[in-house]
């Protein structure tokens, strides 16, 4: 069990939160979801990045 697993598991929930936040912003008259959705791709990419970094540097590991 290392951090890569953690980031992999957290990716879904964090994307979900981001999705919700974008819809909240959309509803409250800020930027519309149609223009903010790329943020989801960025979050997804960040998590992929963290995962691969974590695999290369298996710090933490099982506690």
């Amino acid at each position: 069990m290392n951090q890569a697993n953690l980031f992999g598991a957290l990716r879904g929930p964090v994307l979900l939160i981001a999705l919700g936040v974008l819809f909240v912003i959309d509803q409250n008259g800020g930027f519309s979801f149609a223009s903010t959705w790329p943020a989801l791709i960025i979050v997804f990419g960040l998590f992929k990045l963290l995962e691969s970094l974590a695999i290369k540097n298996p710090v933490g590991g099982a506690q």
């Binding site: 953690l6 990716r11 994307l15 979900l16 919700g20 506690q63």
Partner: peptide, 24 residues
């Protein structure tokens, strides 16, 4: 939903339990 799931995953990570392959 995302927040609850995040807390659950962090909790089981801390407990050293097996993490699900995918959070959602």
């Amino acid at each position: 939903w995302g927040a609850i799931r995040t807390v659950e995953i962090l909790y089981s990570w801390q407990q050293g339990q097996v993490l699900p392959q995918r959070g959602v």
